[in-house]
Nucleic acid binder design. Structure first.
Lengths: 232, 232
DNA sequence: TTATTATTGTCATGAAATGAGACAATAATG
DNA sequence: CATTATTGTCTCATTTCATGACAATAATAA
């Protein structure tokens, strides 16, 4: 990770959404020997496309390829520049903040992306500066480093705006799912309760879903159908 | 414009929309002694907020303060890097592309914004590298430099998505306007014809407009009311 | 003064989408 | 076979929207 390999002053951060236990969650890193939680992020190589850099970083962190990824905002306030925070992290990891890693103390403008992944397919991998990589529900986030709380808030806003225009449910659920599970994804993202019959009618009318066999859960009531999304 | 004043590798470009003659138009620069048309853009000072930098550049170009401004995408493909294009422009202006301006040949990741302005209040000002600064209708654009055509296309897409959520008409029209003028703004942005009665009903029901006196144009028909937007 | 013309503001009508609840079907259990 | 919880679908009222009809009106022509 020599400074000459990367474009200086530019980073990316990714808000990685997953869905589990009826809650919308994101992946956060915790740095060694500090109490700072942060979004997974990284830098862009000199001859690399910005979007490719983000995809590369995500694949390292999740092990998944072909992740659903969307850029949503670039954060460039001068106030983001807090070199002492990076210094703390570097030194807590035993790196010399005056040497090879000096460039990481510079001012960075960061391009933010959100990703949607299937929670069950992922084993989160921490990076070389962090030891934890854990899921946190978006309605119970701990304090985050720098302006990362603003970045998460904007990511959720964007997700809400996009919920009916992009196939968000598809990327947060397994291949096959019940109508109730899909409804819970919508409810977790929008933060409201939806009416079951109206939701079901709207989804079926949208022609996005294919109905499959029933799912017998072993519980004492009618078994729901499984669905998948028509377009991949 | 010394390299040390600005963050390297980061630029912004602005798509400045105006409305005139029932057409949606944008401002383009033409560089001295070249045939390259480009979006107005600039760089971010070392201790300046990104958003402030864009606002500063826009004020220089239009003379307006408090411009409606929205960031919509950051373009970071490596293919954007075409140093010979910048070299041509610099040398056509008599600058030494190997000296003080050398940094402008570097790779840049550009943050794109769109602005909405009242066409009649603006006298476009070219910058130090360009001699023309002219309005072009978005449906008849000439070839643009680098990936600027992509940037414009994405700006228009974003404008369409935002048309009902943000007060776009307000910023493209003078203080008071007729319902027909507002409809023409919508039609120019969406690229479709709208039904007069439906548009009028929807706008009145939205509660965004205040009705003022009638506008007597001298033509042989009923005079329309003037409207303004309720919130500023 | 009165008829003409183009445009505007509003209403009437029917179609489509949505909200809210009713109800039968059904998978397991007692 | 009755009970229970949940699901799939239907009904009905309400709201929204598309479309066309029509009267009001500002200037001009007769």
């Amino acid at each position: 990770m020599a400074s000459t390999d990367y474009i200086p002053h530019i980073s990316y951060d990714s808000v990685i959404f997953g869905f589990s236990g009826d809650k919308l969650k994101i992946l956060l890193l915790e740095y060694h020997n500090t109490e700072l939680l942060a979004l997974p992020g990284g830098f862009v190589k000199n001859t690399e496309d910005l979007n490719d850099a983000v995809r590369r970083g995500l694949e390292e962190r999740t092990g998944l390829k072909n992740i659903y990824l969307e850029q949503f905002y670039t954060f460039g306030n001068y106030q983001r520049h807090q070199p002492q925070v990076l210094k703390t992290i570097l030194e807590a990891n035993g790196f010399d903040s005056g040497g090879e890693y000096r460039w990481m103390l510079d001012r960075f403008i960061t391009v933010a992306y959100y990703a949607l992944i299937n929670y069950n397919e992922v084993v989160p991998q921490p990076d070389e500066l962090s030891d934890f990589c854990k899921w946190y529900p978006v309605d119970q986030l701990p304090p985050l480093m720098l302006d990362h709380a603003d970045i998460v808030a904007k990511a959720i806003d964007t997700l809400r705006e996009n919920i009916d225009r992009k196939l968000i449910g598809m990327n947060l659920l397994p291949e096959k799912f019940t109508m109730k599970e899909l409804q819970h994804v919508y409810e977790a993202i929008l933060g409201v309760n939806l009416r079951r019959t109206t939701f079901q009618r709207k989804m079926l009318a949208s022609d996005l879903l294919i109905r499959h066999e029933k799912k017998y859960s072993g519980e004492a009531h009618k078994a729901p159908f499984l669905y998948s999304f028509r377009i991949k």
